[in-house]
Design a protein around this nucleic acid. Structure first.
Length: 481
RNA sequence: CGGGGCGUGGCGCAGUCCGGUAGCGCGUCCGCUUUGGGAGCGGAAGGUCCCGGGUUCAAAUCCCGGCGCCCCGACCA
């Protein structure tokens, strides 16, 4: 009985477990359209929490939201050579509208640089118009060959920031500012530690000068690119003729950036924290931080516990805690299992015994149950949430660090670690793209990023792990999603 | 596109090898009893067996041809 209701375990089949968690928590479902998913209310609620936190951060740093069209004239994509090369193979193209063949096919945006720069060319004339700091929340379509719920779907939701600046230095500062915001969001809200740094040329965004990313490690020890921030240099400005008059009277192309995170973050959240009972969601992103389950036998107790539960909802909500009471007519045990699968951080069990004691049973999603007094409950819950938020980040960091190898002594140690353990490997790299490709072919591992200073090893590697030639940089390898 | 698996009430499956008029579990609805870790009993509703063709007295089952989805690779936020 219990077995048939249990999820596939992580140890048995990580990818089946991942799908089970999503289905059981009702985060998403497959749709009638291949590769496209339906984000169900429980999943969308997490995305909304992510959106509101990120949106606040963007606005606090001077960005504004806008909205650009879903359709892009096909010729626009072709204006930037690398961009079209990177995205043309995975675009969906509209050839007919209103029953007639279109004069020029319209591409369903895979990303919006091109149409946005077409507009920036109109809007930007003078140094006084800069910087332009715009973000949009949108859906995009990329015709991926193989899809996975949240991690890679044909259509996905994201935000894409597009900024234009007067100088190269300002553009670089913006790129790094956003990278920092992403990192802050991932660590402080998602409780997901990341390493940051520039990508190698082969992993760079199509059309960018430089791409920085946030890289996280999932519980199966595979890496996931969680967010990217691109310094586009003047590439798109030149392709779309976005010029401005400088303070000195000259004519120059703007320096621009773009950056984005997507609903993939929901997948990252799941694979970072969840367990064999289902979703584990950090309190700061949980739809319901507290779920109250009343327990009763008689009609009289039912009245009393429901009334107490409703009062408790009011009290906790007034204290800024997202709280709901589960008043369905089900056995309490059934509700416990359900809310655990859905990832509610805390459950308050409220029965006649608790009412008599003026206390309530607080059950933590991470384990442990204890009676706590009703007086001061909100303050207690706030403490518990802060503790859980910290515990999740610490645990994720510990898992990542345990799955990290620095400075392997030999090529064989490098290979063995990736084969046997997985995880991140920090090692020296000669910088040769051909070597990077060879390592990928041999080990399936790619360079996730060239780690920023704070992540680098205390002693910089001096030789390339693959060739033995002098290392030009330290790189982080992993098998990735 | 290569490899694997699967298409049967809302969901999960059995039945397919060896053709004989569709079954189980969960869920749903009604009633009674239950409710501090996945409730019990009784009753009820609900199916173009993915699609098209063929063989046959007879096809979920055999044959041919399609379509779709999932998983594993190559490509990618």
């Amino acid at each position: 009985m219990a077995d048939s209701k249990a999820l596939t375990t992580r140890a048995a089949d990580f990818s089946a477990w991942y799908n089970d968690v999503i289905m059981r928590a009702e985060l998403a479902d497959y749709s009638p359209v291949r590769g496209c998913m339906v984000i169900r209310p429980n999943g969308y609620a997490i995305w909304e929490q992510m959106q509101s936190a990120l949106d606040r951060m963007f606005k606090d740093t001077g960005h504004q939201n806008a909205y650009f069209p879903l359709f892009i004239p096909q010729s626009f994509l072709a204006k930037e050579a690398q961009h079209v090369e990177g995205f043309a193979p995975e675009t969906a193209v509209v050839t007919h509208g209103g029953g007639k063949e279109l004069e020029e096919p319209l591409v369903v945006r895979p990303t919006s640089e091109t149409i946005i720069y077409a507009m920036y060319a109109k809007w930007i004339q003078s140094w006084r118009d800069l910087p332009v700091l715009i973000n949009q929340w949108a859906n995009v379509v990329r015709w991926e060959l193989r899809t996975r719920l949240f991690l890679r779907t044909t259509e996905f939701l994201w935000q894409e920031g597009h900024t234009a600046h007067a100088t190269e230095a300002e553009a670089e500062a913006e790129t790094l500012l956003i990278l920092g915001l992403y990192r802050q969001f991932m660590e402080e809200w998602m409780a997901m530690p990341v390493i940051t740094g520039p990508k190698t040329d082969s992993e760079r965004f199509a059309g960018a000068l430089r791409t920085y990313s946030c890289e996280a490690l999932m519980q199966d020890k595979k890496a996931l690119q969680a967010g990217t921030s691109h310094n586009l240099g003047q590439n798109f400005a030149k392709a779309f003729d976005v010029q401005f008059q400088t303070r000195e009277g000259g004519l120059e192309y703007v320096w621009s950036t773009s950056w984005g995170v997507s609903t993939r973050l929901v997948g990252a959240l799941i694979m970072t924290h969840s367990d064999d009972k289902g979703l584990v969601c950090p309190p700061r992103l949980a739809q319901w931080q507290v779920v109250i389950v009343p327990i009763w036998k008689t009609d009289e107790d039912r009245e009393l516990t429901y009334a107490a539960a409703n009062n408790m909802v009011k009290e906790l909500r007034a204290a800024g805690i997202r709280t709901t009471a589960d008043l369905r007519d089900m056995k309490p045990g059934a509700k416990y299992y359900e809310w655990e699968a859905r990832g509610a951080p805390f459950r308050l069990e409220l029965g006649p015994r608790d009412l008599a004691n003026q206390s309530v049973m607080l059950a933590r999603r991470l384990g442990g149950k204890e009676a706590v007094p009703m007086a001061g409950l909100a303050a207690r819950v706030h403490e518990e949430m802060a503790t859980m938020q910290r515990a999740l980040l610490d645990a994720a960091k510990a898992r990542r660090d345990a799955a990290t190898l620095r400075n392997p002594k030999s090529r064989q140690e490098f290979i063995d670690f990736l084969e046997a353990n997985g995880g991140f490997v920090y090692a020296g790299f000669c910088g040769d793209p051909a070597v990077e490709a060879e390592i990928k072919a041999a080990t399936k591992a790619t360079i996730r990023c060239l780690p920023s200073e704070e992540f680098r090893s205390p002693e910089a590697p001096t030789t390339c792990i693959w060739t033995g030639r002098p290392a030009t940089v330290e790189a982080v390898w992993a098998r990735a999603y």
